Amino acid sequence: MAGHSKWANIKHKKQKEDKRRGKLFSKLSRKIAVAARQGGGDPEMNSDLRMAIQKAKDNNMPNDNIERAIKRGTGNLDGLTYESFVYEGYGPGGVAIYMDIMTDNRNRTAAEVRHILDKNGGNLGSNGCVAWMFQRKGELVLDLSEFEVGEDELLLEALEAGAEDLEYGEEDAVIYTDPANYEDARKALEEAGYEFESADLAMVPDNEVSLDKKDAKKMLRLMDQLEDHDDIQEVYSNFDISDEIQAELEAEDN
């Protein structure tokens, strides 16, 4: 699995995270509000808003929260105005880090993100320093414990639905699509009976950087702190941790 998928798997294992639900809803609200402000409040006419609403529903966000976020974005409710942009940088072992940011105070966010990176063996880079290492793709993650489907069968169904590629692992399968085909492919596969553990547009790394145990421990701590920051919507990286090192780190945490 590529680094972004590895991190997603780790997060799902850690997820007795109801305490973070409020933080997640806050981030989703920002995403909806920014999409509504930039493209209007009608999801039928605004694909970014439509996908932001779908992501909120995937995470069981109440409809009232979704409606309030849309109204804030279109100016029908008072609230802070957020801007959306990207930060790029490096983590332990020279891995690439790509962050989607939404904030009402760019200077504050820059200082806080730089501090998190610096204290965990990373650094903030210039615009474009790592973006070339990633491609934006639709990413549909299937929990294989929930579906008894072989790799060949799933690949055939995914391709027929308009997907581009499949990574089939022991626990999860990740289906990749062109961003333009993401919604249609998801709909077709859901109509075929699949329910996804997660589904979104993501920055997928072209290549991975394998980390030793020391850097892996630092990297996981860094990712956890970046994910936890209120202004960081999504974090993507190209790190990879072997199953053996991951098992050692999990044993140390228990």
Rank of each mutant, 00 (worst) to 15 (best):
A161K: 11
K218Y: 01
G128D: 12
F85S: 10
E195W: 04
K23C: 04
N76Q: 15
N46L: 09
N107Y: 06
E195G: 05
E208S: 01
H229I: 03
A192L: 14
R50Q: 14
L117K: 11
I10G: 06
D206E: 00
D48C: 06
V95K: 12
V209F: 02
M133C: 04
L144S: 09
V204W: 03
D240Q: 01
D152G: 05
A8Y: 04
L226A: 02
E191S: 03
V34D: 07
N254R: 03
E197S: 02
Y176R: 14
V174N: 08
E17W: 05
E157D: 15
A251F: 02
E171V: 14
M102C: 04
P205M: 00
Y82D: 07
G75Q: 09
M61H: 08
N127E: 14
N120M: 10
S26H: 09
A247R: 15
E67V: 14
L249S: 11
K27M: 11
E191M: 03
P92L: 09
P92I: 08
K217M: 01
A199K: 10
A185M: 07
I66S: 13
E83T: 11
G128S: 10
G40T: 07
Q38F: 00
L220T: 01
N60W: 12
V34G: 08
L77C: 06
E190P: 03
Q233F: 07
E146R: 15
K6V: 10
P205D: 01
Y90E: 13
A192I: 04
Q135Y: 04
N120G: 07
D165L: 07
Y236M: 02
E164V: 11
T103V: 09
D243H: 07
R108S: 14
H12N: 12
A2S: 05
R30H: 12
S29F: 02
L140P: 08
A163I: 13
L166S: 13
H229C: 00
I101S: 05
D48F: 14
